[in-house]
């Protein structure tokens, strides 16, 4: 799968085996199918808006995890980082404005607190991975437990309730909800960073071959520090969105997002051994999953009438991942058989 994925700055021209193209087709097919079956119920402004507020949360986390995966590692701690930064941002708000008001300066201060916390957590991950040399999956498993643990210690395990960030969660500009804009902005920035900076270039190279990177003078420690720092920063952004949407911050929110984000990354064509993956693929995977969840939800609700329908999406996500992998397997086989 790795060698078929395009990497920058030399995108492989679109081949029959291009996973981004395949994903775009999958996303479009899913969208078209549900629009046909469910008609107005799916294909409506209201549904678009309701879908739009759901995916940014895990979409932002997926970018963070994808970054680390491209570098040849993984960051399992991003949800812990998101919750910890969200909690501290919430506490900043409730502490300085106990009356529940939300002056702009305080909102900015709370956001700053979240970003600082996210940065520190990310840098600590970078330290564990790049300096100590712990395998990323274990390092971030441990640090994730640590961050979540701090969340428990600080809150005593209860949610910190505040609607002082609701303006971000519920607001919209030109009909586009703020969370979507935040996700789009994050995606754009990271697409640019990965494609058009030396750091991004080195992330791909490091993820392809650590030894060759060392022999080529790539300063892997710096590159990794920056990668995990940025992942932590994105975790904090996700934490702000959590808080703004849920009007509360708690240490165990969205724990399923870790595996969901890994699933999205792989679905989006990020190589699980590193070196390959694009933000465009990732965004398409996020959209595919959102269309699939919402559409299936509606469909199953219509068919069964039971509230259990909301769980069908979970089944469908897993099935989609396996189907995509099996398709990749067969197309790889075909490619191997044909010369060249």
């Amino acid at each position: 799968m790795s060698e078929t994925t395009a990497s920058q700055p030399f995108p492989t021209s679109i081949r029959r085996n291009n996973p981004v193209l395949r994903l775009a087709i999958i996303a479009a097919l899913i969208f078209a199918a549900f629009s046909l079956i469910l008609r107005d119920q799916f294909f409506s402004v209201r549904n678009m808006q309701s879908m739009a507020v759901q995916f940014p949360e895990f979409g932002i986390l997926a970018i963070a995890i994808a970054l680390t995966m491209i570098s040849g590692g993984i960051d399992l701690s991003v949800v812990g980082i998101a919750n910890l930064s969200g909690i501290l941002a919430a506490l900043t708000m409730t502490h300085f404005a106990p009356d529940g008001s939300s002056p702009l300066w305080l909102m900015l201060a709370a956001i700053a607190v979240a970003l600082v916390v996210g940065s520190l957590c990310g840098l600590f991950n970078g330290f564990l991975v790049a300096r100590i040399g712990i395998p990323p999956i274990l390092a971030t498993l441990g640090s994730g437990s640590l961050y979540t643990g701090f969340g428990y210690v600080i809150t005593g395990g209860y949610a910190v309730r505040t609607a002082q960030m609701a303006a971000i969660g519920n607001g919209s500009l030109l009909g586009i909800p703020y969370p979507v804009m935040i996700f789009a902005l994050a995606a754009a920035i990271f697409a640019l960073l990965l494609n058009r900076t030396a750091w991004g270039f080195n992330v791909y190279m490091l993820g392809t071959n650590t030894t060759a990177a060392r022999f080529s003078g790539v300063r892997s420690i710096l590159v990794l520090f920056r990668t995990y720092w940025l992942a932590g920063l994105l975790g904090a952004v996700a934490g702000i969105v959590f808080l703004a949407r849920a009007n509360s911050a708690k240490p165990d929110y969205g724990e399923s997002f870790v595996l969901l984000s890994v699933l999205i990354s792989i679905l989006g064509g990020v190589s699980y051994i590193g070196g390959f993956g694009t933000i465009s693929g990732l965004v398409l995977a996020v959209l595919s999953l959102q269309f699939l969840s919402t559409g299936l939800n509606m469909l199953m609700l219509q068919l069964s009438g039971s509230s259990a329908a909301i769980f069908f999406k979970q089944f469908a996500w897993g099935a989609l991942l396996l189907i995509v992998m099996v398709i990749n397997y067969y197309s790889q086989q075909r490619q191997n058989r044909s010369p060249g």
């Binding site: 990497s7 030399f10 492989t12 270039f201 392809t208 070196g275």
Partner: peptide
């Protein structure tokens, strides 16, 4: 193969 090249990456990269 292991120290000199990024085998899966493009020649250009």
């Amino acid at each position: 193969l292991s120290e000199g090249l990024f085998l899966e990456q493009s020649i250009g990269n």
